[in-house]
Nucleic acid binder design. Sequence first.
RNA 1: GCCGGCGUAGCUCAGCGGUAGAGCGAUUCCCUCGUAAGGAAUAGGCCGAGGGUUCGAAUCCCUCCGCCGGCUCCA
Length: 645
Amino acid sequence: MSESITVVLPDGSAMEVERGATVEDVAHEIGPGLGRDTVAGLVDGELVDKVTPLTEDCEIEIVTPDSDEYRQVLRHTGAHVFAQALQRLHPEAELAIGPPTDDGFYYDVANVDLDAADLDAIEAEMTEIVAADYALERVECSRAEAFETYDDNPYKRDILETEAAGEDPVSFYVQDGWRDLCEGPHAESTGEIGAITLLEQSAAYWRGDEENDQLTRVYGTAFESESELEAYLERREQAQERDHRKLGREMDLFSVPAHSPGCAHYHPNGMRVRRELEEYIREKNNDLGYEEVRTPELNKADLWKPTGHYEAFKQEGEMFAWEQDDTEYGLKPMNCANHAHIYSEGQYSYRDLPVRFSEFGTVYRNEQSGELSGLLRVRGLTQDDGHAFIRPDQITAEVTDTLEIIEEIYDLFDLEVLYKLETKGDDAVGGEDIWEQATRGLRDSLETLGLEYDVESGEAAFYGPKIGLDARDALGREWTIGTVQLDFNIPERLGLSYVGEDNRDHQPVMVHRALLGSFERFMGVIIEHFNGNFPPWLAPEQVRILPVSDDNLGYAKRLQNRELSAFRVTIEDRSWTVGKKIQAAHDDRVPYMLIVGDDEVENETVSVRDRFEEQLSGLPVEQFRDRLATEIDENRVEPGIVERS
RNA sequence: GCCGGCGUAGCUCAGCGGUAGAGCGAUUCCCUCGUAAGGAAUAGGCCGAGGGUUCGAAUCCCUCCGCCGGCUCCA
């Protein structure tokens, strides 16, 4: 039955081809050059082998070697190369699942213990498999046969029952007589991989669920050439250069000593940055109508029982709590219970709402030891927290105003953030209708502001849905910083109320929000974001004066104490050459260096050099002072007194 | 918490059974210098902690603590 089907190309044009034609046939039809370059296809968005026959009308895109899709194909093949090498050396190992990722691939395996030496041996074996250039062939077999093959392998059987549910026959890929259940697509042969390496290993749970078996996950990556792999490894190393832990030490910002794991010590430099952030956020909180409060870290555990936090935090071991004098005490893991208590002590009319409390609230959470990471994940943290108690009719306005300020803040820091809407999870308290109303409230505001967001089902806190803002660190990992959450449950559980127009009690809605999230995590993020090059308004040291000789020290001191006394100014008084002084200031990422010698002393000027190596000689001191004041006042991100050439 | 890796001078690291080393930094002295490293000298270590093996342990083994990557979890 020879009939034709319609395929639509990425440019929108349509093509008639014979039913059963392959992706490669279509490519040849478009042009012989493209035909030769074809390595795979995207059919209706799904990556497939180039020999896949097209059986019905579809949209098609030809995948060529210079595309991201091709790398995915190569890496998927890389995962098979690893699996084959593993089973050559450890025949008892069972394969679970091995997909490509953004940067490479991993394979989860069971029934085998691997250490670094094992991985080295496996990697050597992988190199041989690539060198042998085995062809990869797709073969099909019946479901029954597949189940038989994986008689002892519960993971592959699980895949047959889920991903491959109902498929008959199912596909395998075979190389050198070794085979693996797989949908494909793959490279034509193992030799297509130009460079392959294993990166690290970890434990991982089957299907990502802690309740399931723990598997050994081995990560690796593959590239089309050795030089591409080298470039990738080089990029990774460079990313580590801006690691906030490294910069924090080099710039003497903070430390996390062994005696207080997960609790940062702010050094004077780091504290200056933090104080600037605090002042900035105080202003924003003021703009939003918040009143600052202060509540204790130490509370009786009873405080968190009515809110549900006790159950949520204590049972999980996440709360630091202990018995003392027959009473259970705890360190607060969040501030909302205390803020709700302040609210409950007042009496409010509908005209008083919103009532808003903010606090730089220090909280403690017993995060699992393996999760701690510099400033990005800690046990003791200070949130720029705030809770607004509002009427239901104020939800959209309140959330929208907050999001607007949040946008302004992230814009100021030149930070790219991803908005996530997190919805009701398994641990949720409260009724379905309440959750729906709250979720709609958040969604409405996001849409009113035209913000793009992802929905993450089931990720919300137990008391209400949440908008989270994720920023990326130097290694590309995502960390939630700012957040806005709507809560109908705590007001209900605590019986919070206000008097309505009808002179009867009504229940307020609670908004939980943090603009930066926590000072710890936010600082970690911006240290990496700026690579330590803080905007002048945040820089721990804004100006460093470099006297050309000791004779110029007096002038330097006068500048520091008089003309520039409004700024954070230090003097480099070590008896070094000017070149070395410049290098040191540069390493310390000081926005402005002022080089002062006899010429400057005589003319009451400064010679300005900024961290971009730009210079401006003979600038009158008052002009430098005024321009710097403006830059700081306007929270500019980059030093701009010296024009960049 | 789990899997793997790692803890040696302030930092980066070498040493891997025979009494602890380098570079940078620090300190002191000399030099007083004009836009990315001037010179000399000195100090600095319970080799993460505890236990074991050994004539002898930084080095081998065990336990604990901490750190790194990942999993899970989260601001």
